[in-house]
């Protein structure tokens, strides 16, 4: 088992955002997380990605308990996240964003001192973007000059760069056009083929049904239930999310 979450909870003062959520994921499995606004999807995602500490509960990665003190711990452990707001530094260039936090370095003429390998970062950024079918005029362009779809590709490229075992995507297709959306869903399938697990948080039921193996439904911070994707269609899933009834 790649990821096991047990009795996870998160409270903000008197408000409970997540309560008693348990979930397990296999290697190469794509799991959808659905729920209405305030269901606890983003909180769950942020805890697994190390962006927030849980108030209680346990997370195990390949059977070992993990306690992330920040996103870096999660990234190092093999969990990369793509946030809904993309979490990009918009004044910085494409390649700087792709490699933010994990810049490539090379040896310098001063023993023991490593300097940035900008050429390698530019080349690798182009490769990552090409995997998503995105070609940019220049990877030196600041992100604030890119379209929504291109920005999404930069954020996904950053997650690919970590070569993670689990990629968490929060509404990855929300800002995309039809063609770009198809590419992102293709990428999810490709990740699965290469053994990478994906936790897909989405409001778009068509997307969820198109690429996931099963779906967990959250409601009011609690796990409502889970269902194999093969047994449902988008309308049925939508009904489950809205009504909170799994039948």
């Amino acid at each position: 088992m790649l990821l096991e979450i047990e009795d996870l909870g998160k409270t903000y003062g008197a408000v409970s955002a997540l309560s008693g959520v348990s979930l397990a994921m296999d290697e190469g499995e794509v799991v959808g997380v659905c729920g209405d606004n305030g269901a606890g999807k983003s909180t769950l995602m942020r805890i697994v990605a190390g962006a927030q500490p849980p108030s209680r509960g346990a997370v195990r990665l390949r059977g070992k308990p993990v306690r992330f003190t920040g996103p870096r711990d999660a990234l190092t452990a093999g969990i990369a996240a793509i946030y809904q707001d993309l979490a990009l530094a918009v004044d910085q260039s494409v390649y700087q964003n792709v490699f933010m936090g994990s810049e490539l370095v090379r040896r310098s003429w001063v023993p023991g001192l490593r300097t940035l390998d900008k050429r390698a970062m530019r080349e690798r950024s182009r490769e990552y973007l090409a995997r998503l079918g995105i070609e940019l005029e220049s990877v030196d362009a600041p992100v604030n000059r890119l379209s929504g779809g291109q920005r999404q590709a930069v954020a996904i490229s950053r997650a690919l760069r970590w070569e993670a075992a689990l990629v968490i995507m929060d509404e990855p297709t929300a800002a995309l056009g039809v063609r770009e959306k198809a590419r992102v869903l293709d990428l999810v399938r490709k990740l699965k083929e290469t053994g990478v697990s994906v936790l897909l948080v989405s409001h778009n039921m068509d997307d969820v049904v198109a690429v996931t193996d099963r779906v967990v439904i959250l409601r009011g911070g609690r796990l409502q239930g889970e269902v194999a994707t093969a047994d449902i269609d988008a309308d049925r899933l939508s009904h489950m999310v809205m009504s909170g009834r799994m039948q």
Partner: peptide, 26 residues
């Protein structure tokens, strides 16, 4: 600031603190 990883992390922290944190920068 221009040639080292530490310098880039320093600048990222100033320019976009939360994205930098989420990208694994301390």
């Amino acid at each position: 600031l221009k040639r080292t990883r530490t310098g880039v992390h320093l600048v990222c922290t100033g320019e976009a603190e939360e994205p930098a944190r989420l990208a694994g920068i301390r």
